[in-house]
């Protein structure tokens, strides 16, 4: 085995093509798709439409980056949608009912997300419940708690509690997250880009990122190399919950209301973006850039297809096709394991 590795890589044409598709296949498809849409639909290639696409991708990207972090430690966070819903409700209620400022509301929302992370950490790291089962139960717990907290109704300006009309409303700062812009780039895109850069730096360039991947790759060996496995798993779930809460506030600011369980669909979207990301640049593991591409890919695809009057009810199908193609790339074209 050791000697074969030393031989000059003399690959056949098929092998080389396979390697190319494995590494660049998904990016190439994305590029071709954008070119095709731009040529056939003049509006697709405009700056405004590009911002539409990125805005559509931004929330999925932020939640997906959180999922990516929990996946690097070998975990899986099913509670991100519920964490989003909880922080939406917490932040909305802080402003509408509590009449707090936007800054305080944002802090309260983020604390709610981190609290979900704490709950998951306790269940997974201390109670040793398997990740999937633990986060599934916190999904239900948190969703139920959110509903009970607001009596099953949406939180919006002028809502009625105990027969009294509330006086608070969404503050301008908070609204800016949803509708503001920086040099005509929507604020949510700026936030998502910032989160992306931070997660990329954390995972790819710091010692903590190295430890995250080590814990996910082989927890026994990571512990033997002096990595405190429990701490990194806790950190990963805190980051996952925290990013879910940021995404939640991006969503609440867009609609200026806190609707019940609006976070739910984002769980599957985010997980799918992170999984599509495995196939980007042949990473074959959770990675920040891949997750971003996964989120943008879906948004661009749906945006373009809509211009061709593609029915909205077929979106799930399109997403499914993308996920299957991406997974086929990582699992069938990837380097064969002995």
């Amino acid at each position: 085995m050791g000697t074969t590795a030393l031989k000059a890589p003399k690959r056949s044409g098929i092998e080389a093509t396979k390697q190319f598709v494995y590494r660049y296949g998904l990016l190439a498809v994305l590029g071709l798709m954008i070119v095709y849409f731009t040529v056939t639909q003049p509006f697709f290639g405009t700056f405004i439409n590009a911002m539409f696409i990125l805005q559509a991708a931004s929330i999925v990207a932020v939640v997906g980056l959180g999922c990516t972090v929990s996946m690097t430690v070998g975990g899986f966070d099913l509670s991100v949608g519920a964490a989003m819903s909880l922080s939406i409700m917490a932040a909305a209620a802080a402003m509408v009912v509590g009449e707090f400022s936007g800054t305080v509301a944002i802090l309260i929302g983020m604390c709610a997300g981190l609290a979900v992370g704490v709950l998951n950490s306790i269940l997974i790291v201390y109670a040793r419940i398997p990740d999937l089962v633990a986060t599934l139960s916190s999904l239900f717990l948190i969703n139920g708690l959110t509903l009970m907290g607001v009596g099953g109704q949406s939180v919006a300006k002028g809502m009625v509690i105990n027969g009294e009309r509330t006086q608070g409303e969404f503050t301008p700062l908070f609204k800016w997250i949803g509708s503001g812009d920086v040099f005509s780039v929507p604020a949510s895109v700026v936030i998502a880009a910032t989160v992306f850069i931070l997660v990329t730096v954390l995972l790819n360039f710091t010692r903590w990122g190295r430890a995250f991947y080590a814990v996910g790759g082989n927890p026994v060996a990571a512990a033997a190399a002096g990595i405190r496995v429990a701490r990194y798993r806790i950190a990963a779930y805190l980051i996952s919950g925290g990013l879910a809460s940021i995404a939640g506030m991006m969503l609440a600011a867009r609609s200026n209301r806190g609707d019940v369980n609006v976070g739910d669909p984002f769980l599957l979207q985010a997980v799918s973006a992170a999984l599509v990301g495995y196939a980007v640049l042949g990473a074959n593991k959770p990675n920040a850039f891949g997750t971003l591409i996964g989120a943008v890919f879906v948004a661009a695809l749906i945006n373009g297809l809509t211009m061709f009057n593609f029915p909205y009810y077929a979106q799930s199908f399109v997403q499914g096709v993308l996920l299957v193609v991406a997974l086929l790339m990582s699992y069938t074209l990837g380097p064969s394991r002995r």
């Binding site: 710091t206 010692r207 990122g209 190295r210 190399a225 002096g226 593991k285 394991r337």
Partner: peptide, 27 residues
């Protein structure tokens, strides 16, 4: 107890020595 699947040699060689191979947290 010592190997991380699919990871390159250079990451293996420094896994326990992060302090020697990083500056303010950056590898």
């Amino acid at each position: 107890q010592s190997m991380f699947p699919n990871e390159p040699l250079w990451k293996h060689s420094t896994i326990g020595l992060a302090e020697d191979f990083s500056r303010s947290g950056f590898m």
